[in-house]
Amino acid sequence: MPVRRGPTPDRGTVAAMTTQTVVLRDVRAVFGTGTRQVTALDGVSVTFERGRFAAVMGPSGSGKSTLLHCAAGLDRPAGGTVTIDGTRLDGLSEDALTRLRRDRIGFVFQAFNLVSALTAEQNVALPMRLAGRRPPATEVTAALDAVGLTGRAGHRPSELSGGEQQRVALARALISRPAVVFADEPTGALDSVTSKQVLQLLRALVDEHGLTVVMVTHDQEAAGYADRIVTLADGRVVSC
């Protein structure tokens, strides 16, 4: 299926697009049918700027995780558009969407999602190997070095602390040099000291390497590391 293209943007629009990594326009997400239908996102429009750290907050059921899943191309919205790094997701086939997620998006989740039988460096390289590519050892080392784990490359998850496992997950997200990293409660399984270390690392990656991060969190202290807080309630943006 070809990518759907809109009208050619004017110069002002092009200039704005270069500063916006993720753009959601009037996004709706609906689950269930009939009397059990639930509107998780109700016309959400929000942009996430390149090289910035954004936190998405709101009460349980406000639509935080649904927003992240739609923005990351994990779920297709019922309406509206999502654009990542200049590419509209609604015009992509499933294969093209999979490639975009693999090449342009990094993911970090609360549960780490590491393969227990693999070492840290093997976990970092795994997504590219599954895609049929062998990342140069120097790139794997650079990704681990960026998260402060060069000396732990040969250790398996069971030999690493929770914070170190989350750092491996972050290195895995960075290996493809993504346009954006989506983090869903990345410190939810960590103690307060380790959470602070991971958040400081994310902050440093934004400030020193220009990483774009969109983080869902319920923790006000964690959100304090972000440049901007987007707050949801009942599937709508109430402040940003």
Rank of each mutant, 00 (worst) to 15 (best):
M1P: 07
M1K: 04
R5F: 10
R5Y: 09
P7M: 10
T8E: 15
T13G: 13
A16D: 15
Q20H: 09
V22R: 09
V22Y: 07
R25I: 02
R25K: 14
D26E: 14
A29L: 14
V30M: 10
T33M: 11
Q37C: 07
A40H: 07
D42A: 11
V44S: 01
E49L: 09
G51F: 06
R52S: 12
F53C: 13
F53M: 13
A55P: 05
A55T: 11
G58R: 05
S62Y: 00
S62H: 00
L67N: 08
L68P: 06
C70K: 01
A71D: 02
A72M: 07
G73M: 03
L74Q: 10
D75Y: 14
R76K: 15
P77S: 11
A78S: 15
V82S: 03
T83S: 10
I84F: 01
T87S: 02
L89C: 07
L89N: 04
D90L: 07
L92W: 04
L92F: 04
E94F: 03
E94G: 06
D95I: 08
T98W: 05
R99M: 12
L100F: 09
D103N: 10
D103Y: 00
I105L: 09
I105F: 08
V108G: 04
Q110Y: 02
A111R: 14
A111C: 09
F112A: 02
F112G: 04
L114H: 01
A117F: 12
L118T: 10
Q122R: 15
V124F: 05
M128I: 02
R129S: 07
L130S: 10
G132V: 00
R134K: 13
P135L: 11
E139V: 09
E139A: 15
G148I: 10
G148Y: 07
G148V: 10
T150W: 04
G151S: 14
R156A: 08
S158H: 13
E159P: 02
E159C: 04
E159S: 06
L160N: 05
L160Y: 01
G162M: 11
G163E: 07
E164M: 08
Q165W: 07
Q166W: 00
R167A: 03
I175P: 01
S176D: 05
R177S: 13
R177I: 03
P178S: 01
A179I: 00
A179G: 02
V180S: 03
V181R: 02
F182E: 04
A183Y: 09
A183C: 15
E185W: 00
S192Q: 14
T194D: 03
K196T: 15
L199A: 08
Q200S: 12
Q200K: 08
L202G: 10
R203G: 08
E208V: 04
T212G: 04
V213K: 06
V214L: 08
V214D: 02
V216S: 06
D219T: 06
E221D: 15
E221I: 13
G224S: 13
R228Q: 13
I229P: 10
L232S: 06
A233H: 15
D234G: 08
R236H: 09
R236V: 13
V238E: 13
V238A: 12
S239C: 09
C240E: 15
C240K: 11
